[in-house]
Computed example of a mutant assay.
Amino acid sequence: MPTSTAYEDELGDHFARHADTSPYNAYVDRPAMLALAGDVDGQRVLDVGCGAGHYATELLSRGAEVVGIDGSATLLAHARRRLGDRAELHRHDVEDPLDFIDDTSFDGVICALMLHHVANRRQLLGELRRVLRPGGWLLASTTHPTADWRHFGGSYFADDWVDLPLAGGQMSIHYQRMTLETFLGELLDAGLRLERFVEPRPVPSLRDVDEAAYHKLHQSPSFVAVRLRRP
């Protein structure tokens, strides 16, 4: 089990580059999450696990005020180069409470492809509910459990920590497998109300960039994404 969720050093640099153009990040998860966010003009949004600042950039362009947190100094350096002084960024391990953030201080929270890296998810989700104003929204995406089942095998209901090789096996990311029941159950147990559930497909522009990836990702699920609201 990890003691930190951070992608540091070479892994952080690889992820920052990869997220720019990866079919999975740039053409599947990011468009789906931004569509779920909808109109964010004038809203204060917390980007949890902000990485290299790709989502924050899009949210800022839509008129949001963005605060980003990440445990990785490497990724935050990329985010600062990308964002300049347009967003407030903090280095923080999300396994620890968000005790530097006031109650009910955000209109929205985005957790893009990061909850499966967190061991103490129930604590984190409780903290995210705390910092949301009543009526505020939370977006979360994670790896599709069917994709993990196809890749790692074994039982669909497995909840083990696994390592997914990257860059031809030179690096890997460490995360916990979750069923849909676990993913949604933990969010609902945190006192959030489900509004939308999607299994994102690639946007049409991927076809012009990588037709093979476009067709593959229309046939095999990669992620799930949800929008929830604090009552």
Rank of each mutant, 00 (worst) to 15 (best):
M1T: 04
M1F: 00
M1P: 02
S4Y: 00
S4Q: 01
E8Q: 01
D9Q: 15
L11F: 02
L11Q: 04
H14F: 15
F15D: 15
F15H: 13
A16H: 05
H18R: 05
D20G: 11
T21N: 13
T21Q: 12
P23V: 03
N25G: 03
D29C: 06
D29H: 07
M33R: 00
M33P: 00
L34P: 12
L36A: 12
D39R: 12
D39K: 10
R44E: 09
V45R: 07
L46E: 05
C50S: 07
A52I: 12
H54V: 13
H54M: 10
Y55K: 07
Y55C: 13
A56Y: 09
T57A: 14
E58M: 09
L59C: 05
L60G: 09
S61I: 05
G63I: 10
A64R: 03
G68W: 08
G68S: 04
G68V: 06
T74M: 06
L75F: 01
L75V: 07
L76T: 13
A77S: 14
H78M: 11
A79R: 08
R81W: 06
D85W: 14
E88S: 10
E88D: 11
H92N: 04
E95K: 00
D96G: 08
L98P: 05
D99Q: 08
D99P: 02
D99A: 12
F100H: 12
I101D: 04
D102F: 08
D102W: 09
D103I: 01
T104I: 08
I110G: 09
C111V: 14
A112Y: 09
A112Q: 13
L113G: 04
M114V: 12
H117Q: 05
V118D: 00
V118M: 00
A119G: 02
R121H: 00
R122E: 09
L125T: 05
R129K: 15
R130C: 07
V131K: 00
L132K: 05
G135M: 00
G135I: 00
G136K: 03
L138H: 07
T142C: 15
T143Q: 12
P145E: 06
P145L: 09
T146I: 15
A147G: 08
H151I: 11
F152V: 01
F152L: 02
Y156N: 05
F157C: 01
A158K: 11
D160L: 02
D160T: 11
L164Q: 11
L164A: 10
L166M: 08
G168E: 06
G169S: 03
Q170R: 15
Q170F: 04
Y175D: 01
Q176D: 02
E181M: 03
E181L: 04
F183H: 04
L184A: 09
L184R: 04
G185S: 02
L187P: 01
L187R: 02
D189H: 11
D189Q: 10
G191F: 03
R193L: 14
E195P: 01
F197H: 08
V198Q: 08
P204R: 06
L206R: 11
D208C: 05
V209F: 12
V209M: 09
D210A: 09
A212Y: 04
A212Q: 12
A213P: 10
Y214N: 03
Y214L: 04
S222K: 12
V224Q: 10
A225E: 14
V226T: 14
R227K: 15
R229V: 15
P231R: 04
P231T: 06
